[in-house]
């Protein structure tokens, strides 16, 4: 449903802070849609342990036959690239078009390759 609730004139602007003291750890959920495909990130959820995370993931992410297998991983266990290092990390490959098949011109007479 929807729900851009309009600002009431004079509504206080909230500083929404993170208070992580009480809540359960977060888990990242990966779902394999069918055999032969990779597990793909579906979303995340909170759960007290891995078993409950799996149970919750089933209810939240596979209610319509979206999967045949689920992985859950503690969000804190994921190491990610730093968005500030994107240029240094990935740009060098932009300058190496010869890594792609389309770089090479093959005469039509040769046929499909």
């Amino acid at each position: 449903m929807s729900y851009d609730v309009p600002q009431i004139p004079g509504e206080e602007e909230l500083e929404v802070a993170a208070s992580d003291t009480r809540q359960w750890p977060m888990w990242e959920v990966f779902v394999r849609q069918r055999r032969g495909l990779s597990h793909v990130h579906a979303g995340s959820l909170h759960a007290p342990d891995a078993e409950s995370a799996l149970q919750n993931a089933r209810d939240v992410y596979t209610r319509r036959a979206e999967g045949v297998s689920i992985w859950v991983v503690p969000s804190s266990a994921i190491t990610a690239t730093d968005p500030d290092d994107v240029d240094a990390m990935f740009d060098p490959f932009d300058e190496q078009p010869y890594r792609h098949a389309t770089y090479y011109e093959i005469p039509d007479e040769v046929g499909k390759m």
Binding site: S19, D20, T21, R22, Q23, H46
Partner: peptide, 9 residues
């Protein structure tokens, strides 16, 4: 929550 807030909050 990805924006730096928490579910509890």
């Amino acid at each position: 929550e990805t924006l730096g807030t928490s579910r509890d909050e």
